[in-house]
Design a protein around this nucleic acid. Structure first.
Lengths: 244, 244
DNA sequence: CGGCGACACTGCTCTAGATCAGTCCATACT
DNA sequence: AGTATGGACTGATCTAGAGCAGTGTCGCCG
């Protein structure tokens, strides 16, 4: 293993736990079995119990649920370094489905491998528990957003959060980031109609806060946007590992 | 330690991992330092970084966030057996506050104790990771509810979910359960006004689906309610430990 | 080339649920 | 007994955002 090319997941976990060489090796080994998937392929079906998770190393995925009324609620987007379906390993059934938004690369991790790795390296377990907690914190923010924020603040918060996540794996900064999502994705994620998303994006663009266009998010007034969205980046910023 | 009186947390974790005597002892030992708190005392303040979590052994707590507009969003309720502020141990800051709804008993767990326990008993770490995942799954359900369900289905789903959680620690069944929440709590949790909650509860009562009154939830037509709410108990029902 | 599908964008109407402004009951306090 | 106080409950009005029905504009493919 060379230090030159570490995976996005490793990069992310290093922000939390200072892992030793043996732990790093085990972690890298976990996602050796890399595979490619094309747009549209369902990775895990709703209700299916596969006892395996994936580590996403390249591309974007969304996890969603189909509602009985036929609409879909996008629960979260996964970017490189994120787990797909960690819950389906721990809970017996997968509670939602995953669909690639772009072509992706992902490594399959067997439940047994994971539990095995935990026994060998408890600090690794802590790191992964941290990553899971962080994901939950994000879902909570998302929840709060849909519950109380109006459409403008909701969209603003979403774009900021995504930016922070991408920054953590080196795929964006305060200027902006590449983003392959359509307005329909935003609508399904934020519980708004695509039509309304469009109006909101136009408003944000016209007030110079942020531009979402041609697969590119460009921040015009970062601080203004943070204020509008009441964005609190504390739960993402770790500023150095907690565990030495 | 006697086997007669196991804690709600242990009871819950046993649904997932078959723990041996040493693990059980360590787990019980974790919540030895039990304390009581009265209604209204803020356990963890928003933004405060305390590096400690609590295990709730008796009573009800809500975790909430204050929005900039002064309203509060209740993120989740904790019932006996739940962790309070596990995230504030792992992330550096606590991202929301906790407030007892009833008088409670809780045991403080130092971050170091927890990480220590993980090293000694990796299977315990897995069990706690499971509990955290399950909590996340619930928050996700909650999120989906607020995003897409109408007020009636939202309330119905909430009452069903709470019932399932309580059943897991032996505090409720398909007939109903004791519930100290006010209509204002429901409103703050579900992103509806108290006024509207009241109307919805009346509707649910008048159609004979469920009664929420005098601190008691009574299911009238459990299956009808499940249908209305599109409630999927799969992520709570484990039907026996996954890990032997 | 023309046709088709995906996505962006617009104006209009309509409804779910918020907000306001109360009443009615308990229980607790003095 | 007299008065706060907190919760349940109601009707009238207001509004954000959905739903509908469309136009405009790419890029692709036969």
């Amino acid at each position: 293993m060379t230090a030159v090319e570490i995976s996005p997941l490793t990069r992310k976990l290093l922000a939390f736990v200072a892992l030793n060489d043996a732990e790093l090796a085990l972690l890298e080994q976990l996602h050796e079995r890399r595979r490619s998937f094309g747009i549209g392929a369902d990775l895990v079906h709703q209700g299916q119990s596969e006892r395996a998770a994936y580590i996403l190393s390249a591309g974007w995925v969304c996890s969603y649920k189909i509602q009985p009324d036929g609409t879909r609620q996008i629960v979260d987007f996964q970017v490189p370094g994120d787990f797909l379906g960690l819950r389906s390993v721990l809970l017996r059934t997968s509670d939602h489905a995953f669909e690639p938004i772009t072509d992706i690369q992902a490594a399959k991790v067997q439940a047994s491998d994971l539990i095995n790795a935990f026994s060998l390296m408890p600090r690794l377990a802590t790191a992964i528990l941290w990553a899971a907690s962080r994901d939950e914190a994000m879902v909570v923010e998302h929840l709060v957003g849909i519950g109380r924020r109006d459409a403008d603040a909701r969209v603003a918060h979403f774009l900021l959060e995504l930016g922070s996540r991408l920054a953590l794996v080196g795929m964006g900064d305060r200027a902006g980031y590449r983003c392959p999502l359509t307005q329909y994705h935003l609508a399904d994620a934020l519980g708004l109609s695509a039509v309304h998303i469009n109006r909101v994006l136009r408003r944000l663009r016209e007030t110079g806060l942020v531009t979402f266009r041609d697969g590119q998010v460009t921040f015009g007034d970062y601080r203004g946007l943070v204020r509008l969205a009441d964005f609190d980046p504390a739960y993402l910023d770790q500023s150095g590992p907690l565990l030495k």
